[in-house]
Design a protein around this nucleic acid. Structure first.
Lengths: 116, 116
DNA sequence: TACATAGTTGCGAAACAGCGCAACTGTATA
DNA sequence: TATACAGTTGCGCTGTTTCGCAACTATGTA
């Protein structure tokens, strides 16, 4: 594999990760684990404005992580790559291990997230 | 699990993903797959300035993804959670499937990455 | 047609990330 | 001490992300 295409793969990989680097988008992915849902469903479960949820969904959809299906007034969204849940669960697993091992991790990450 | 701590888990999860959402940091992680390496090693392999590599490493280290070991003049870095490579590989696997299925995906992602 | 509901899009402000450059610290050797 | 090498840190600039708000489109019903 050439140096150039390696670069591009890293770039794509980073793009996918950057889609996953927002708590609301992660929650949406998690909520779509089993069933497809509408923007309204998600907005209600998440306690957010529909416009906000729609914006996050647009990002997920444009990057190809969600698929849409219209049915009358509603648009149902579902995961394009259910396999991605494995990566999601793996990361969360590591997170939980870390939390149980070092209780202060949580605070540390949270504080760094606040200031920096 | 309370609503509040769910929020915080999503937040942490997003923080980890945001550390992974940079091609240079992903390349560093990939280069540290087997052996620990110094900033100089990485800078040379990646063709970047040491200062730049050091900045990326600082982010990885502060977020707890890397561990350091000093030996004389050199500081050797290694992965704190080798298990994270599984998540890394899983995502890349999905990426490669997507690429082979739809050749235009690459261009699409790349172009969106450029303009938007 | 008019109206309601579901969802999308654009705007603007604030916060944040990336990076080059220069200055700095820390360790080893002479 | 001085010098060299390895790595870190701070600054300033630029581009991007997030989010509330308002305006908009699209579908269904009366």
């Amino acid at each position: 594999m050439s140096r150039q295409s390696e670069r591009q793969i890293y770039e794509m990989h980073a793009q996918v990760c950057s889609v996953l680097s927002n708590p609301k988008r992660l929650e949406i992915i998690n909520l779509l684990r089993e069933n497809e849902k509408t923007v309204g469903d998600l907005a209600e479960k998440m306690g957010l404005a529909k416009a906000n949820v729609s914006q996050q969904i647009a990002i997920l959809r444009h990057k190809g992580l969600l698929l849409a299906r219209r049915e009358g007034q509603h648009i149902y969204y579902r995961l394009a790559y259910p396999k991605m849940l494995k990566a999601y669960d793996l990361l969360r697993e590591i997170l939980m291990e870390r939390l149980s091992k070092q209780g202060e991790w949580f605070e540390k990450l949270r504080k760094e997230g606040e200031t920096k």
